[in-house]
Write a protein that binds this DNA or RNA. Structure first.
Lengths: 167, 167
DNA sequence: TTGGAATGTCAACAAGGCTGACTTAAAATG
DNA sequence: CATTTTAAGTCAGCCTTGTTGACATTCCAA
């Protein structure tokens, strides 16, 4: 992993401050790459990264309520509402009053919404697919293990909930 | 990796759209965790994440020029200048005219700057250390391999340049 | 029937990106 | 030496996306 040698030997080498600093920088640079492709598409439209996130999670969990989405995205309802309003106005998202609880709004993508979400996700996935292929299956497993361990417990719960039954 | 089975078998399973979507969500949630702890500290002060990034990379590459830092951070000089000005005014960063090229300004952390940088980095590293320990050395290696593959080539170059000679 | 939850909306504000225009100083180049 | 280019800084204005606070509406549930 490195030519350096800690007193504890190989086992703990990856926990030195320098290694952790390197990990932090890798996160920073990789996240830039992670968002670069969809951002480029959104630049042309009148949307931003916040719109992408909303579309993504509505696609992942169709019928989710506004409150649910707030928790997942970690923003205030005012922030989300601004984004959601334009998406609904533009016919990309459909808001449906709940049958059992009429206070709730269930969110769905329209066909146009699905089309844009697919375009954005495809751009993002193309890069991830290449990265996963380059790194190999075992690296990908490690990648996910570390990312999961880095999440806040509450967010980790959300993450697993999203993937329930599918992952 | 999953109970699902693709026609190609185990080898390509991690490249299905669903797996890639899961990877994207892991990135999103993990990045939230990654920034949460320093953000909490910065909330109290009159600084933001942009200040943290500047402090971090000046600490990583002391004496770096403004232009260098611009490239690494990927922002405009106007954006960076706003952040840098307050850090210099507050005595956290020192700007030194270059000896060979007097147009350049070389940036260094003062003692106070190093102290704040350490506080922020420590908070961030605590979480990463725990995550790395939980996931294990092989997972960490995979984590880094995938992140690196996800970077833009230009940023990957920057990333390696930062780590040059230090592992 | 009343309290509280879910949603939506208005207004104001801040951080941190951006562009464009311009200055200064110094280096590089013809 | 004159000119052009480069590095840095600054001013003004704009956008996105986050924040609070206040308030209205609707409706479930005790």
């Amino acid at each position: 992993m490195s030519e350096g040698r800690s007193p504890q030997g190989e086992t703990l080498l990856f926990l030195t401050d320098e290694q952790l600093r390197q990990g932090a920088e890798a996160m920073f640079f990789a996240y830039r790459g992670f968002t670069a492709d969809p951002d480029r598409i959104l630049d042309g439209l009148s949307y931003g990264r916040a719109h992408h996130r909303a579309l993504h999670f509505i696609q992942t969990a169709p019928g989710t309520t506004v409150n649910n989405l707030l928790t997942i995205l970690g923003v205030t309802k005012q922030s989300l509402n601004r984004v959601l309003r334009t998406l609904i106005e533009d016919g990309l998202v459909q808001s449906q009053v709940g049958r059992t609880d009429k206070r709730e709004r269930h969110l769905y993508l329209t066909e146009a919404g699905e089309a844009l979400e697919r375009e954005l996700s495809d751009a993002q996935r193309t890069r991830m697919r290449a990265a996963f292929r380059d790194a190999g299956p075992e690296a990908v497993a490690g990648f996910r293990r570390v990312l999961e361990a880095m999440m806040d417990p509450e967010l980790r719960r959300q993450y697993h909930k999203l993937r329930g039954g599918r992952g």
